[in-house]
Design a protein around this nucleic acid. Structure first.
Lengths: 111, 111
DNA sequence: CTTAATTTCTTCTCTATTGTTGAATTAATG
DNA sequence: CATTAATTCAACAATAGAGAAGAAATTAAG
């Protein structure tokens, strides 16, 4: 299949969540962040699956952190957005902006 | 699958194209409109498939027009966005707006 | 005329990618 | 060893996409 020129909504949300969380961007907080925005449960499994895909497409990278000194403190896998990922975010914004901007019915509202 | 609270990118683009095209919203112009925004080919097949999904979700409705007196003037199937569809578009915009608005790195840029 | 080619538009079929859930696994601490 | 925080896995459902086939109308050839 041809390469997409934009991000799907779910992947876009994940990229934005990773950017926003900065140093604390790992699986669990990322899915919490998504839940906050979507107003319903987001299973961690789906988040990890999407992160895998994003990593294989070079839009995020990951590294294992040290275990934290708390019970159940398994090492976390931290994610960060790559340059290519950031480019994609901007490109997606550009496309959506253009689409919305051209709609007479919706003019005046700014995203 | 659980009902999504947002639109996929492709379906969103189609809804916006349908709104924009108004009285001329049928398969072929819709896919042309998408091509314009995405800058590459969009197969009509995928557009119809998405329109089917949108209709079964009640976000668009369709009706058969009369054949036009021109070569190949087969009856067209016109689409229009339903109230629910319009609600979805607004909801999607709201969510994306919120996501982008909260990003420090991207502030200052307006979509 | 009537049959074939052409045009426009819709439908079908098949494949790939994305999204989801729920359970299983791993690795740490008490 | 029980508990907890985290990640990974496996199976599946929905969405996205390409391309070929089908249908209905007009135009043109004989």
């Amino acid at each position: 299949m041809t390469e997409r020129s934009y991000l799907g909504e779910f992947e876009l949300m994940i990229l934005l969540a990773v950017i926003q969380l900065g140093e604390e961007a790992y699986g669990v907080p990322i899915s919490r962040e998504l839940e906050k925005h979507r107003g319903r449960d987001v299973s961690v499994g789906s988040v990890y699956a999407a992160l895998e895909r994003l990593e294989s497409k070079g839009l995020v990278s990951s590294s294992l952190g040290d275990p934290t000194p708390e019970r159940g403190g398994k090492a976390k896998r931290y994610f960060r957005v790559t340059k290519a990922g950031l480019r994609q975010v901007h490109e997606t914004r550009r496309v959506l902006s253009k689409l919305w901007g051209e709609l007479p019915e919706l003019k005046g509202e700014r995203i």
